[in-house]
Structures are given as structure tokens and as C-alpha cells.
Design a protein around this nucleic acid. Structure first.
Lengths: 135, 135
DNA sequence: TTGCAAATGCAATATTGTTGCAAATAGCGG
DNA sequence: CCGCTATTTGCAACAATATTGCATTTGCAA
């Protein structure tokens, strides 16, 4: 099943309480979390340990690391992020959240000779409803 | 004409030596410059003044502020940036090169209520002609 | 030329992220 | 179950990037 411990085991890293709690937080979050967000959710954890736990989750492929509009790193669970693969999505430049849009996937454009297409993504950026209101 | 002083005047801000030099640097740069980059180009300028000059150029619309992958702010002259506006880009996953495609820019999809659109980009990934041959 | 709002320079401070090192611990072999 | 070892954790110090406060200077318009 998909408990945090199982995910960690199958990713080949040691199962520690810190990693389980952080991964749980990322998985149940509705948007990418900054280090400060995680720290607020897990007040007992050490600052530096959190940075290292987050980086270790990225290193083993369980989390993704991105940068938000303020230049702050944000982390999201890869499993959650993968739900949006192939969708047309809206990326909030403020909070880093990703939202699926009800839109037809883009059709591949004409490529110059010799170019090989691997992936095509329509990337729509802006501020989501929540950030527009509070920003 | 398009001197830095003229651009500043028509943007409605005071023409100061610092702003002229920074705007010149941004206009002649081939990529977006970080604060540290600008500081290296203008070693006599005060660190804090540079931050404020850069922000003032953004505020009056002459420069754009973005964040790079390391979470560092980068600034570019708006005029330069506009050259690539609306292009469709092909990103080679092998060599990292970016190529402009001759394709119609995508049309914006319907957004949920409250969402604000800032930018829309069709991101096409694959291998370029050169890397396809040698790969 | 003069006055004033805006810009500058400097010092201090905030925020975010990293490094070094000793103590604790997960996972493994016995 | 027991101990060994590499990994992880906690703490302190540090580093990089960005912001704030305030006194002084300067652009520019009347």
C-alpha cells in the first residue's frame, strides 16, 4: 500500500520518523510546501534536519523541488505531482500550486527536420484564485 | 531615440547615473542578470542602492524580475525580453539548447473564476537535430 | 535659484539556506 | 536478540541573498 514508510522503503532509503512525517505532510498538502510551511506543521523538528530530510526526499525521487515567485524553495510529493502529467495545468507563480484545466491538450507543432518530439506541455502561469485574493 | 536616459524619462522616473548605468547593463546583457552580476559590472555602486535601482526599474516597467532555479532574482530589460514574447520554444533534453519554432502561439484556455493569467507557454521537449544524430 | 520629493549611502537586520561535527539510530549480519 | 556501521539527527556557526531605518544628497520643476 502507499503509506509513507512503504514509499520510503521502495525508494531505497532508511525509514525514519522525520521522513515519514515530512512525506505525509507533502502527500496530504494541497499545494507545494516551503521549508517554513513544513516547519510550522512539524514544530518539534529541527530546522536543519528538515532541510536535509526534504533534500533526501528529492534525491530519492519521492519529492520535487521548485522555486516560487519570492525565490523560496517549495517541495511537493512526486506522487501527487504525477497526477497532473499530460494534463493542461495552471501553475500559480505565488504559491507554486498546480491546477488542472478543462482544456484540450495542445497539438504538436511542425518541427524542423531532424528534431524528435518527446513531450509537449501547455504551461499556463499566473496567480490562482486564493493568491489573487490574499496577494 | 533609445538611450537609457530617454527610456527613463519616458517611463516617468528621475534620471540618475545609477539608473542609467544599470539600465544600460540590462539592455546590453545577453541574459537576465542577478544582483551579483550587476554588482560585478558596476563595482563602484552601493549594494543596497543597486537593489533599489533594480526594483525601481521593475516598478516603472523598464525591467522584469524573475527567479532562477537557485532562487535568486534575475532582472532583464523589458524591451529585450519582449523579443521572445509569444514564441513557441523547443527545449532539447540532451544539450539543454532552446530553439524558437515557427508555430502559432497557443490560445489561452478557459480559466476557473478568480484565476489570473500572467503567461502562457507551449513547452516542447525532445532532442534537437544535432543531438538526435549523435545520440 | 530654491524647495522638496525622490534617490543614495551606510549600518543594521531579516530571511533563507548550508556546513561541520558529535551524538543517536535504522537496518543489517550474526 | 545483539552489536556493528553507515546514515541520520541535533546543535551551533556560518553564508548568501534581500530588506529596513535614517541621515545626506540630488534631480528637477516652479
Amino acid at each position: 500500500m502507499g503509506t509513507a514508510a512503504d514509499l520510503l522503503r521502495s525508494a531505497g532509503v532508511k525509514v525514519t520518523p522525520g521522513r515519514q512525517r515530512v512525506l505525509d505532510a507533502l502527500c496530504s498538502a494541497s499545494q507545494a510546501l516551503s521549508h517554513a510551511d513544513v516547519e510550522a506543521l512539524l514544530p518539534d523538528a529541527d530546522r536543519v534536519t528538515l532541510y536535509r530530510v526534504l533534500d533526501s526526499l528529492v534525491a530519492c525521487g519521492l519529492a520535487l523541488k521548485a522555486v516560487d515567485a519570492r525565490g523560496v524553495f517549495r517541495f511537493s510529493a512526486s506522487a501527487v505531482q504525477r497526477q497532473h502529467e499530460g494534463h493542461v495545468h495552471f501553475r500559480c507563480t505565488d504559491c507554486g500550486g498546480v491546477f488542472c484545466l478543462e482544456a484540450a491538450p495542445p497539438s504538436p507543432p511542425q518541427l524542423p527536420h531532424g528534431f524528435r518530439l518527446a513531450e509537449i506541455a501547455l504551461d499556463v502561469r499566473g496567480t490562482c484564485a486564493n493568491c489573487s485574493r490574499t496577494g
